[in-house]
Design a protein around this nucleic acid. Structure first.
Length: 188
DNA sequence: CATGGGATTGACT
DNA sequence: GTCAATCCCATGC
């Protein structure tokens, strides 16, 4: 069998919707993802293999974790065959377990504010740069890819990037209140 | 070695 | 709506 993550990154991004991310006592259901691939300039791997991107070119099923804006940690799942730089960014979760711990880490009470963004969910789950390169089937951060929830999925443009903005490589559950920027006007 | 730009968030006008 | 925080790392001199 070919691994779940060794398939085209867009397929994996769509199928990760409804899977459960777990880290320690905290867990959440994936409701929003984005796909990135070395062939397009929004992807960190576009520049080739560097100190930062070695994980992206490594074996599928690993976590690619990096720091954004010097503040926020981003969780990605490395995809496609080894040597191809591609990954799925996990952008939002519906909190399932460890919600009080998430509240303490996030210093927020409303459950909609715990994991409704890529930087928020890593803080809520306690994911750090030390998790970069870890195997997502072994932990400490894991993603359960079997028995995922069957949820509706809509594709749209990726958020917060300045290159390759026309690609509709963002996948989200329509109308879900835990999706990032859920309060903002829908894209048109 | 110095510089500048982010796959964001939260606070503020 | 605007904007600062904050730091890794890619790039260029």
């Amino acid at each position: 069998m070919s691994g779940f993550y060794e398939r085209p990154v867009g397929v994996v991004a769509r199928e990760l919707i409804g899977c459960v991310v777990r880290c320690g006592e905290t867990a959440g259901l994936i409701v929003e993802t984005e796909a990135y691939h070395e062939i397009e300039p929004a992807c960190h791997a576009f520049v080739g293999r560097t100190a930062r991107t070695v994980t992206l070119f490594g074996p599928a099923g690993r976590a690619y974790v990096y720091l954004s804006y010097g503040l926020h940690t981003m969780l990605n799942a490395v995809c496609e065959r080894e040597g191809v730089g591609a990954a799925v960014l996990i952008r939002a979760l519906e909190p399932l377990e460890g919600i009080e711990l998430m509240r303490a880490r996030r210093r927020r009470e409303r459950v909609e504010e715990l994991c409704s963004g890529p930087g928020k969910l890593t803080e809520a789950l306690g994911i750090t740069l030390a998790d970069n390169g870890a195997d997502l089937r072994a932990g400490p951060v894991t993603i359960a890819t079997k028995g995922r929830a069957a949820l509706p999925v809509a594709a749209s443009r990726r958020i917060g990037i300045t290159k390759a903005v026309e690609l509709e490589w963002r996948f989200a559950v329509p109308g879900n209140r835990f999706v990032s920027r859920a309060g903002a006007a829908p894209a048109r």
